[in-house]
Design a protein around this nucleic acid. Structure first.
Lengths: 377, 377
DNA sequence: TTGTACGCGTTATCAG
DNA sequence: CTGATAACGCGTACAA
């Protein structure tokens, strides 16, 4: 395989000159540059990555860490969009992405990961895909002075992160949900060790208290970010005599678990139960069209994380990076807005004991004209 | 940062000795080994990855390529399981995984990817996550003699791949589906440029012909691997007067698109329409419990791909690697087996004009006792 | 068993 | 603008 010296000899110049040509160093005459470039092209030469990394002290690789505890996250539709954003940014910047998945709560595993990638300088920076409370990796990285970027605001200010205003957005959404005369709110929340989850719960609590409820009377169930868990929890919740008439779910997938539980129990949405989710993407899953939700820019979060990480790596920044991205309340049918619910709606449930329109029980209404690509930057 | 030489000086030995200790070379006295190891431990020393890669000519990195054309694949539940399998194998082997996503049909992009990673020796091997017909990357890699492993049998024998018997499994599934006296079969197939998709279609055709049908009368629609596309296509198909009474879908997600279309049109599954999917995982999505399907080991495919790639990289193998993994026909309710359909079934649809059991229209039956982790190795 | 010397392919420094 | 030369950090024949 060709190396720098070969090219130099073929071009009749020194290795230094070839190196300059490759790295677009201006200190080369146009004539020489053209000649060398032609040879490089002809020979299909590309510098050896390891050698370059050794000399440069830069690998051109960013790590992307998915906490293993969040296996559910990996299956959540949030993840592919987020990753896509990371990849798009990486491509633009000219770095590659290393996919890591480690148990974030296991000190040994965290240490190994850091040894294997950070201490060896295998990677230039790290994106942590989900902030967990007491994530030991964060402090370890900060202490090492190693470039990193968190997805999700950590407990400790002074860290770098990109996030959305989970708390405020959730409070807004809850206020809206409560605005239809609901009297028994509840929440299916995510696990408290995830900061985004606890922020959403806090926002819900803010709005609920603000509306004059006693928190002690308001059921809040914490489960994994999965449709299935939400379903089971909602089934229990909605089976009680004093069942909720408004549920805020910490993700859209969970909201659908709730919806399924409601349907199984014959509870009408939105008439008997107002429902609000959180995520707002899913152009390719058709059950999502009628769910009121908070839209968050999953792609943009990934894109921003990698871009800012690059800034940090290149010292184009000082002080902690705090990036807040915008969310948007998406009001559709499930919250019970005055918007009429189409009869073919996913939410539609026939009157108890009444006649059923043949062919339409529980059928799905697809808003054909609705914009599909809502999550592209 | 600490060096091999630093450790050598601290231990009072030469760098070679330290290197031997690190690489578990037996030619070191136990006494010296212990002393050096202690120092290494104390100093938290780890060899510089680039330097080691330069000397070894091994980076310890495998690439994982997701063709960008398959954005839908990325959102499909198949992907996280497959990736998990890759990661598990990589961890065991001691390599890391680089996540790549490129348009496989763009010659320029393919060339760039190969230049950037293969020619520079940034990675030791490549897993291609989905074989496309006429994938130029494959021949490029084979020509370079670069270690690679395909997921999905390619056109050209003589390549390395891991796959399931898509054709045979689909034929079996179709035979079963047709075994209930169905007279108008149809298929919602994946895009023909994906080999796995065209294999499934071929298997369907095999069984249909074998059963005496004229292929010209059998509707086969090719769409993306997405629930939404399948829904739209099924809606058209089922709206016709001579509508199918048995549909084989190329993935479970697509099968659910079909199911939704059927429900919208008031067509009962399995009474009026037999339904068969392909995938057979999804422990965390509760709509999947009643779908008859072909189970494929997504996790195992990823795990095998990386393991075998490692063998290839280490020359532990000669000749092309052809690995076939087992599938399993999973007979549940949607195909119309004599198994009784529970009244709360997802598939259940009330009789036309009949009374509806309050609380149960279209509700979902969750088999609580069913084994969840069906996809672990 | 241990140490020496060189190679791996680039980039960076400094002299011209 | 160009070229020689020294890092960069590690692995490994080969010699001792």
């Amino acid at each position: 395989m060709m190396n720098l010296r070969d090219i130099a000899q073929l071009s009749g110049v020194s290795r230094s000159t070839v190196s300059r040509v490759i790295n677009d160093d201006p200190r080369v005459s146009d004539e020489v540059r053209a000649r060398v470039k032609a040879i490089i092209e002809r020979e299909g030469y590309h510098p050896h990555a390891a050698a370059r990394a050794l000399a440069t002290r830069r690998s051109g690789v960013f790590g992307l860490v998915i906490p293993q505890a969040l296996g559910s996250l990996f299956g959540d539709p949030w993840f592919p969009r987020f990753t896509q954003g990371c990849l798009d940014a990486a491509r633009e910047i000219g770095v590659t992405l290393m996919l890591l998945m480690e148990p974030a709560d296991d000190p040994v595993a965290v240490g190994k990961l850091i040894d294997r990638l950070v201490v060896t300088r295998h990677i230039d920076g790290l994106v942590l895909a989900a902030s967990m409370r007491d994530d030991m990796m964060i402090s370890a990285l900060a202490e090492l002075g190693f470039p990193y970027m968190l997805v999700g605001r950590p407990r400790d200010e002074g860290r770098n992160f990109v996030d959305v205003r989970n708390r405020e957005a959730s409070a807004d959404a809850t206020r809206h949900l409560l605005g239809h005369g609901r009297t028994r709110p509840a929440m299916i929340a995510g696990p408290d060790y995830m900061i985004s989850a606890s922020d959403r719960r806090a926002g819900f609590e803010d709005a609920v208290c603000e509306a004059g409820f006693d928190l002690a009377d308001v059921p809040i169930r914490q489960v994994d970010f999965s449709q299935r868990e939400a379903y089971n929890e909602a089934l229990a919740l909605l089976g009680r005599p004093d069942r909720p008439d408004a549920i805020f779910a910490a993700s859209d997938a969970m909201a659908f678990g709730v919806l399924q539980a409601a349907r199984k129990l014959g509870i009408r949405v939105p008439e008997d139960l107002g429902l609000m989710g959180f995520d707002g993407f899913e152009p390719d899953r058709i059950w999502y069209w009628e769910l009121s939700t908070v839209r968050q820019p999953a792609h943009g979060i990934g894109y921003t994380a990698v871009t800012r990480l690059n800034d940090i790596v290149n010292h184009r920044t000082q002080g902690p990076e705090h990036v807040w991205l915008e969310t948007e309340l998406v009001v559709r049918h499930s919250c019970g807005c005055d918007m009429p619910v189409p009869p073919e709606s996913l939410l539609h449930l026939p009157e108890k004991g009444g006649a059923v329109r043949p062919g339409l029980p529980g059928a799905i209404f697809v808003a054909e004209s609705e914009e599909l690509n809502i999550d592209r930057p």
